[in-house]
């Protein structure tokens, strides 16, 4: 399934493409666990990803418990919470990575631009072209820097000037200046921070709408981390970024919205990052972010 026919599918309760209908959907959608002031559009940005009553089980263990939230377009949304709270599970729901886990069972609705990604007619592979992902540990292929970036384009038979796309992707990933003279060298020769930016370049080369990042800087030193953080802010101008991080200060620094998951796969609070870190509504969130538990 291509991006076009996914977007044009008519199975969503709010058919894609009509801004008026989209806004009506946003205004009337359920917002369990979401601050009232944060429902609907966020800072003038439209909702791109919307979860409605999403539940996930791994065999008999419930990993996500009735999650509803709306992720705004062209913003950075952070997912924080203690280990095992379900934040990475939620991230993997967005591009159906959980499909790859036999024991995983997903219920509920998850819309990408008003199309339910769990509808039978959605091709997960096509979905993942629209929803790129960067993992905790940099995982470049044992190929040249150029081929690492071009790989995603090749397997999609994507047309276009690969040289131009590779250069643009490396520039967007803030890596071009460091590697432009060594594009034929192995991606594995780069430093950890450079490898992670190479993976980001690879993820954005197919020009996805959403970029999922699962602790992208946790394996990096402070300098490499700060480069990734700067990069994330810049990427949000082009893409919708959803990041899972254990580093609460990182979430505070780089995100516009923060979702706090707590034990049991529960979304306890979701709202503007400033509000979450200065005056959260939930005492449980207050206790978690101030370190009184967890």
């Amino acid at each position: 399934m291509t991006r076009e026919n996914m977007t044009d599918e008519a199975s969503s309760p709010a058919d894609g493409g009509d801004p008026t209908t989209d806004e009506m959907l946003v205004e009337t959608s359920p917002t369990a666990g979401v601050s009232e002031s944060d429902s609907g559009t966020a800072g003038g940005s439209r909702t791109l990803v919307e979860a409605r009553n999403v539940n996930v089980w791994y065999d008999d263990d419930q990993a996500l418990n009735d999650i509803s939230l709306e992720i705004p377009e062209n913003r950075v949304t952070a997912m924080i919470g203690p280990s095992g709270c379900g934040k990475s599970t939620f991230l993997r729901c967005i591009n159906r990575m959980n499909d790859l886990i036999d024991a995983a069972r997903v219920e509920g609705d998850l819309f990408l631009r008003n199309k339910n990604v769990y509808d039978d007619d959605v091709d997960p592979v096509a979905l993942r072209r629209r929803v790129g992902m960067v993992f905790q540990k940099p995982n470049p292929f044992p190929k040249s820097i150029y081929d690492n970036v071009a790989y995603g384009l090749e397997i999609q038979d994507k047309e276009g000037d690969y040289d131009e796309i590779v250069e643009r992707s490396l520039k967007r990933a803030a890596l071009w200046d460091e590697v432009e003279d060594q594009l034929d060298e192995s991606g594995l020769e780069l430093s950890g921070g450079q490898q992670q930016r190479l993976c980001i370049a690879r993820a954005i080369a197919p020009d996805p709408e959403v970029l999922l990042m699962d602790e992208p800087a946790s394996a990096l030193d402070p300098v490499a981390t700060s480069k990734i953080e700067d990069l994330i802010s810049e990427l949000a101008e082009e893409y919708t970024v959803v990041i899972v991080t254990h580093n609460m200060q990182q979430a505070a620094r780089i995100s516009d919205k923060t979702a706090v998951f707590l034990t049991g796969g529960e979304l306890v609070e979701f709202g503007d990052t400033q509000k979450i870190f200065e005056n959260p509504d939930s005492q449980r969130v207050e206790d978690y972010i101030t370190g009184k538990f967890g």
């Binding site: 609460m248 200060q249 200065e278 005056n279 959260p280 207050e286 972010i289 101030t290």
Partner: peptide, 9 residues
Amino acid sequence: QQPVASDLR
């Protein structure tokens, strides 16, 4: 300590 929320206030 990077205080937040009520601690920061």
